[in-house]
Design a protein around this nucleic acid. Structure first.
Lengths: 334, 334
DNA sequence: TTGTACGCGTTATCAG
DNA sequence: CTGATAACGCGTACAA
């Protein structure tokens, strides 16, 4: 494999000169530049990023920690991150933690050893243990679709409480007053509780009758969770005309179960989801839902981490705006 | 940041000894080992992988090229790759090429500069240009869900022709004899044409009437492609009782369009898909489909590349077996 | 404008 | 069992 030394020798210059030319510094004539470029071509020389990283203390690599790559919701965010990263010549290492604390720490060690320039932490809470490690080694971090209340780590996410508020309010404005919610896990302080709070708030603010039994939560946000929770909800409250689901997958679970129970959607029951995944256009009926701009969020997080790396400052949090995408799963009534 | 040198100094040993201990070589007493480990703890020392990579010529990093990360079909394969990679302490850099030749070459250069140990090429054909580059620098490659007919590159995939054959035959065995196909792009020699061939073969082998107009292909394999192609197909052949879709997304497109046209599925029309994505359980009705074991394929490709890296030999191709997952979108008829 | 020489943090090969 | 020391490929003061 040709090194910078080989190039220097063949071109009859010093490695310093070659290095300068490669890095677009000044200090050489156009003539020598051409000569060097020429022999680089001839030798098929490529710079060795590892050697460069050793001396420059930059690897142009960032790590992205996600609970699960194949989850439709994170893969799009990763895509956004990769988008902006690649524009500046940096690469993305993905690590799926499976929400496992031990595995997460393993990854953190691995990434530190690899000397990544920064880390994006996605869809999961930042435990103290993680933070201390990162902080100890001064590794820049940003939280994506997550947040920390006590730690000084910047994040990008939508305002879940507000978004849930809007979703519920939308249902109310369509004339519904018997509304239930199929929520995620109550213990989940990031994506679970806030959406429940938003739901309650909208109900109260609009004087719609509310009781705790109108909210039934699943273990997570999956299709199955949605389907099971809905079954409980509707048997306790057959009078419902609308349901707010805390995720699109849950909404699909509801639709599927409703179909089995011969409940027409949106004829007898309206459903609004949350996420605006690709699948929400594919369902029958197409799903009305709260859109989280996943791709954009990934891009923002990417820009944020690049900024931290380049400037050493910690940026402001970024609250991206949600919106309601109207399709056909919600019906206006009287 | 503490280096191996600091550790050596503080522990009153040489860096050589520290290195030996770190790498579990022999040549030191239990006593010195403890002392060194102790001071490593105290200093919070972590080895620098970049420096190690410079001398060992291994980065414990592989690159994965995919057309699009967020495509449900590839994200699961990446997950499989990452699974096995992490077990051996290697990381995965994902690059989405958007099927763009220029961008792909950019990534290849980037990955070479980063000195990755190997590359997995996913769901896309390996152009000569790519191969020459990889070959020139002796970078191990494996093809995942793709193959090359003229280049000596190992691959892992299912036998598309055979799988399509089985899917079609399954329809026939359920009593159908008026069968159409909504296919992917005919020009696609990897995932397009073979499935068409399999379809034709099954029809012919079972003496089911076949004409070219029974196959209509989309630009790709998307929901929209499926929905549009189906519209053409069914208007030309309203007598059809079953359709083979070349992907699950296309199948969903068909179901959706059929619903709009008041065609009951599976009552009047049976549909079989291809892929067995997560969404195929979520549709109404749940989709009967040909399962490609995406996760396992990723894992196989991961093991394959690790083998190539470690042994320098090129492994056998790996044809993984498909199977038909029966759900509710196909009805048996008289 | 150009070249020399040192250092980045490791591993590995020698001596001792 | 242990310790100097030379690589690995590159960037960069400093000198010429």
């Amino acid at each position: 494999m040709a090194t910078i030394k080989d190039v220097a020798k063949k071109a009859n210059v010093s490695i310093a000169t070659v290095s300068r030319i490669l890095n677009h510094k000044e200090g050489y004539t156009e003539e020598t530049r051409k000569k060097v470029l020429q022999t680089i071509e001839e030798l098929g020389y490529h710079p060795n990023g590892v050697a460069r990283g050793l001396i420059s203390k930059r690897t142009n690599t960032i790590g992205v920690l996600v609970p699960s790559i194949s989850s439709m919701i994170v893969s799009e965010m990763v895509s956004g991150i990769e988008n902006v990263a690649h524009q500046t010549g940096t690469s993305v290492i993905v690590c799926h933690t499976e929400s496992n604390g031990k595995k997460t720490m393993q990854y953190l060690h691995l990434l530190k050893e690899k000397q990544v320039d920064g880390i994006i932490f996605t869809s999961e809470i930042l435990k103290n243990e993680y933070y201390e490690f990162l902080n100890k080694f001064n590794i820049p971090v940003v939280l994506l679709s997550s947040e920390s209340i006590n730690l000084p780590v910047p994040h990008v996410k939508v305002d879940d409480r507000l978004a849930a508020y809007h979703a519920t309010e939308y249902l109310i404005k369509q004339g519904h007053s018997k509304i239930g919610m199929v929520s995620g896990n109550r213990q989940d302080m990031i994506a679970g509780l806030p959406r429940i709070e938003g739901f309650k708030m909208a109900m109260e603010m609009n004087q719609v009758p509310l009781s705790e039994s109108l909210i039934v939560s699943g273990r997570g946000f999956s299709f199955k969770d949605g389907s099971e929770a809905f079954e409980k909800l509707i048997s306790a409250h057959p009078e419902l005309t609308a349901v707010f689901a805390a995720s699109d997958e849950m909404a699909l679970g509801i639709i599927s179960k409703a179909h089995k129970m011969n409940i027409d959607i949106p004829g007898r029951l309206s459903v609004i989801g949350y996420d605006n995944l690709a699948i929400s256009e594919m369902s029958i009926p197409p799903l009305t839902t709260v859109a989280q701009p996943m791709l954009k969020m990934g891009e923002s997080a990417g820009e944020m981490i690049m900024n931290m790396i380049n400037t050493g400052t910690v940026p402001e949090n970024c609250i991206v705006s949600h919106k309601i995408v109207e399709r056909e799963s919600v019906k206006k009534i009287n």
